[in-house]
């Protein structure tokens, strides 16, 4: 063993170095490109321009709202469904898995084409019916519910995977039965016995959904809305330095949000202990 040790170590460093080069060099190059203007030295003008640019805050806030709504809807939909599946019909598991994986197979462009076709169903003479009004309401540019619906579908594969892994790690049936024999109703059993042990899986699902919504471009762009990703595209197209600065900034924003979410998760853990 001792004789073999140096070689794996060498490989470890080689892989690490390769990964560092692969990820960090482009990143560093981007940052340098945005702050170093030839002839002027280091300047943060590009970043200043973004923060002052029209639509930055509205785009970012819209994206965050969409992400929050998507996370809420997809978890409310999937958690009870997955627990019920485990308890009541474990044999349906593979069917649900395939259904939840479909969004990975259908390209977003086909998905959005389908959505726009459906949204065009309401002909003029139906304009006074609730159906038509619903179609109008979900396309309100201030808060396009249709995007939430689309993102819920697109987040299904990730949410399903993380919840499934979380549920596999515990004996859901026994925990629920133990809670019920202690006097917990079925809903109480879910909330007090199952959910706290799913914390990791729920956080994971929220992470992935947040990242998905913040970076999503195709659907929102083609349906004509302007959340953060679309705004980045529209503002970056005109000026090279600004466009790269925006990319760096969006990366930082996503990281900051993920860290905030992780921190939130850590705090609820300590709170639950008390």
């Amino acid at each position: 063993m001792a004789r073999l040790n140096p070689r794996p170590n060498l490989w470890r460093w080689a892989v690490l170095a390769f990964a560092a080069v692969y990820f960090l060099v482009p990143l560093a190059a981007s940052v340098i490109f945005t702050v170093d203007v030839p002839g002027q030295g280091v300047t943060f003008d590009a970043y200043g321009q973004i923060l002052g640019a029209d639509g930055f805050l509205t785009g970012l806030i819209l994206s965050l709202e969409l992400a929050a709504a998507t996370i809420a809807v997809v978890l409310l939909l999937m958690v009870p469904a997955m627990v019920a599946l485990r308890l009541g019909a474990p044999r349906l598991g593979p069917v649900i898995e395939v259904i939840c994986s479909l969004p990975l197979v259908v390209p977003p462009i086909a998905f959005v084409a389908g959505i726009s076709t459906v949204l065009k169903w309401g002909p003029e003479y139906l304009s006074r019916t609730p159906l038509f009004q619903t179609f109008v309401a979900i396309q309100n540019p201030d808060f396009p519910v249709v995007l939430v619906l689309a993102y819920v579908v697109m987040a299904l594969p990730f949410v399903h995977r993380s919840l499934d892994a979380g549920l596999r790690a515990m004996d859901v049936r026994t925990l629920v039965e133990a809670a019920r024999s202690c006097g917990a109703s079925p809903v109480q059993a879910l909330v007090t016995a199952v959910l706290p042990n799913l914390r990791g899986a729920l956080l994971n699902a929220s992470f992935l959904t947040l990242a998905l919504v913040l970076g999503e471009f195709t659907v929102s762009h083609l349906l004509g809305f302007q959340p953060f990703a679309v705004w980045i595209y529209s503002v970056g197209g005109s000026q090279a330095q600004l466009s790269v600065a925006v990319s760096v900034l969006s990366l930082l924003v996503t990281w900051a949000l993920l860290l905030a979410l992780a921190g939130l998760g850590g705090r609820t853990r300590t709170a639950a202990k008390g």
């Binding site: 004996d171 925990l175 039965e177 133990a178 706290p196 042990n197 639950a272």
Partner: peptide, 8 residues
Amino acid sequence: SYSLFPHL
């Protein structure tokens, strides 16, 4: 099976 709630 040990059925204690792991988070408590």
